[in-house]
Design a protein around this nucleic acid. Structure first.
Lengths: 227, 227
DNA sequence: ACCTGAACACCGTTCAAGT
DNA sequence: ACCTGAACACCGTTCAAGT
């Protein structure tokens, strides 16, 4: 039995290949695709290498390691968040839409949320352009300049926390039949009925309610002018 | 050289020990302690077992696995969040203090944040009592009953997201000397100056600003009465 | 019931060898 | 410069054997 190459791909000999077989971009995109298709477990260095038809060690010529690779995935997702709405609509509406799309960018890739939420954003990133747009809008809306960055970070914290909530089970908080927490049991049932009527997911309802409250709160602050 | 036991502890023979050497509680508390002392990497099954002077496999008599163990750690931290303030103070103040202590409970154990943020809360947990108190307060303050649970979840999302922000580097967003993002650069500098004056950490400033906005927003909603 | 000890099936990462 | 192939130093988890 002569050695056969799996999946019909010609086996490479040792030594430098005649043409580049890998690139940083290919690796990161494959990482994101495996994350989507297989979940967190299926997107390790070995799995990505296998998908690309190379040895795991080959990846290290293009990425520093698994953590840096995942940071690349996060940036890839971040770049897809649009900011056009800030030029076109009142700041409250634009901010709400931006936050919703921001959360959706992660929500579309559930397996990434847990992985990416805990990663710091890279320093010099394309996301800085997004911050510039949002911060500029806030200041023009009446936000104190020395508070604008904190406002954006607070919103991002809420967005990320809400994305994490999205991967939790819908019935996670269900108190069940216990009768020692009456206020919670009653409110839980009331919410369940309401959600059943509207067909909304619990995590979506919480996100919407929290987002509206934050934006309303910021609006009151901006309107009040400089303290 | 006869085999010596390390650290002066008598080596156990094989077979069931005469008295219990482990308990679920011991294991979870050791997990939290190692998380604090050594960080995420130092709190694996093997490290916890070593710290307790047992073989890794012994842990599986008391916990289902590493994930379930970490869920226990999270519950341990959650139980330490006090709720007395709701009985004593106006709801806005109580809610703000609760949220701050909630975040501090995680902030006191930085290595846990990334690990615990992505874990769903256990279903039947002591935390349900906390939810009961908070939800009851919100409803009495004028919150619609079918929205109260979502309000609490939204707050928790913000709290967790803010805790994650706490483990990011303080200068993470620094745009540096680039001149293509003027609004952001200017606002970033203004914030840096303000923080230098007050000595506040960036993550703390964002948390405070976001928390006040959310609570103000909820207050406006509650005051408006049922829609 | 609850431990030890050995083994299994994985990881990410390093590095010499090869072109 | 950029790949292969082998090795290193880990993981979490399973399970038979032992008391």
């Amino acid at each position: 039995m002569s050695p056969h190459t799996p999946a019909g791909r010609a086996r490479r000999r040792v030594g430098r290949p005649t043409s580049r077989v890998l690139s940083r971009r290919m690796i990161i995109e494959t990482g994101l695709r495996l994350l989507d298709e297989q979940g967190t477990e299926g997107a390790g260095m070995r799995a990505i290498a296998k998908e690309l038809g190379v040895q795991p060690s080959a990846l290290y010529n293009h990425v520093a390691g698994h953590a840096e690779l995942m940071a690349g995935v996060r940036e890839l997702l971040g770049e897809r968040i649009p900011v056009d709405m800030f030029a076109e609509r009142p700041w409250e509406e634009a901010l709400a839409e931006w936050a919703t799309l921001y959360r959706s960018a992660f929500a579309a890739h559930p397996a990434t949320i847990a992985l990416l939420a805990v990663l710091p954003l890279a320093e010099d990133t394309a996301l800085t352009g997004m911050y510039d747009t949002v911060v500029g809008t806030l200041v023009r809306a009446g936000c104190r300049e020395d508070r604008a960055v904190s406002v954006v970070v607070a919103l991002e914290s809420f967005i990320l926390g809400s994305a994490l909530d999205l991967i939790a089970a819908d019935d996670m908080l269900d108190p069940g039949p216990r009768d020692d927490v009456p206020a919670f049991s009653s409110a839980y049932r009331a919410r369940a009925e309401r959600l059943a009527e509207t067909g909304q997911r619990p995590a979506d309802a919480s996100f919407e309610i929290g987002l509206r409250a934050m934006i309303a709160g910021f609006g009151a602050e901006f309107g009040a002018g400089p303290a």
